[in-house]
Amino acid sequence: MGLYLKNILAFSTQRLLPLVLLVGLASCDNLQQDIDVVIPNGPAQLVIECYLEPNQRAQLTVSETAPYLSSPIPVVPEDVTVVIAGPNRQRETLLYDPGFNFVTGKVYTHRGRNRLLIQPGDVFTLEAKDKKGRVVTGTAKMPTPVPLDTVEFNFNDRPAQLREAIVLARFRDPLGTLDFYRFQIHRDSISQEPEVDYTLEDRLNEGKEVTLGTSYIFDPGDSLIVSLYHFDEPYYRFLQSTQNARNANGNPFGQPAAVQSTVQGGIGVFTILSYERRSLVIP
């Protein structure tokens, strides 16, 4: 809900700003110009992006921060050793073997060989070291999946050939815990950018049934994948802070925010995904 509120306020800002610019005749292109800026470069930090899933092999990406105005090609350090450890003596040093996962559409630099046995509540750790002495550590606990009670669609009352559908999903928020969710709907494949994607917290729905919905944007024949992620506060804060950091670039009213990583000694996220996924075909 917090993100929704931010979004509608961002909408008003984004819609009002052109009005201001219109007033200022800022549609003239020459009111924007390239400039030279001199910003001191800080030391490069290791960046980790790792999402573990039950019964999947670990895959993660290790990269480095770069000066903003430098080459867009990501810097991938090749000397980083990554160790993942969890309950039941699960401990594995991942292989440096860059590749591409066609299911998720993600690039990875390191991969594990063993499928991970993860139960809700299990805690895993990550340690990444390089030969320059940089060390990144992280801890992640798997949240309990929250089941989707219903996933359904409704058509609007337009003529049959023009009708569109909304999708509604319902679940019950666990009582007594601080919970964070991400709701996504993909068309056809999860490797594509989702049609619907928002995060919410249970601040206003503590222990209640929660209904999430979309606009009338789906057409008959659409094959949808509906996902409800349940995650912990550190991952939520990381997502929110990366969004805030991105929004602040180019928004004169935005307050630049530091990224709140879930790892220590570097930047990035290490978490265990916990989600419920349903398929839905709009007839």
């Binding site: 910003i39 470069n41 903003y68 993600k106 994607d197 992620y229």
Partner: peptide
Amino acid sequence: LPQGRFVFQEVYGA
């Protein structure tokens, strides 16, 4: 102004 940047792929592969 941002001093640096890093690449973020996100969970769903966008």
